[in-house]
């Protein structure tokens, strides 16, 4: 059974790149364009991994991550922060909110795919 990945990203192109990349390698994709929708969708569908944009309309990625972590069913789901806001301190803030990985844009789709697989393998082991 293929793994499900939730993409929470407000920007159309970024969402499409992730979708095209991950669908082509056989993942099932869920999409949300805001923090609140993303949190609702995650609680509803229990994805195997979440790609979280940090700059989102409404509640931001940090807050969405905190809310996801508050739900016991999602407490251990890997969350990857994806951001173009690479200020020093942002990374620490993302980890503090509960992210497992931090990728800055522009990322190499190849590298992102490798990281996603790595995290899925890790969570499958435990």
């Amino acid at each position: 059974m293929s793994k499900t990945i939730l993409i929470i990203e407000d920007q159309e192109d970024n969402r499409r790149i992730l979708r095209d990349l991950l669908q082509s390698t056989g993942f099932e994709i869920l999409e949300a364009t805001s923090g609140l929708d993303g949190v609702a969708l995650a609680i509803d569908r229990q994805p195997d991994l979440i790609l979280m944009d940090l700059q989102l309309p409404g509640i931001d990625g940090y807050e969405a991550t905190r809310r996801l972590r508050a739900s016991s069913a999602l407490a251990r789901t890997p969350i990857v922060a994806v951001t173009s806001f690479a200020l020093s301190g942002d990374e620490a803030k993302a980890f503090e909110a509960g992210c497992d990985a931090y990728i800055t844009k522009p990322y190499s789709p190849r590298a992102l795919l490798a990281r996603v697989r790595e995290l899925l393998d890790q969570s499958a082991e435990t």
Partner: peptide, 27 residues
């Protein structure tokens, strides 16, 4: 500065992302 950084990187990110996807034969 923070906004500009974000605004400039977002389209660039898309350009680089699509290009790499094309190059990887996904399309």
């Amino acid at each position: 500065l923070a906004n500009m950084s974000h605004e400039l990187r977002t389209p660039l990110n898309a350009i680089l992302g699509y290009t790499e996807l094309i190059s990887d034969g996904i399309y």
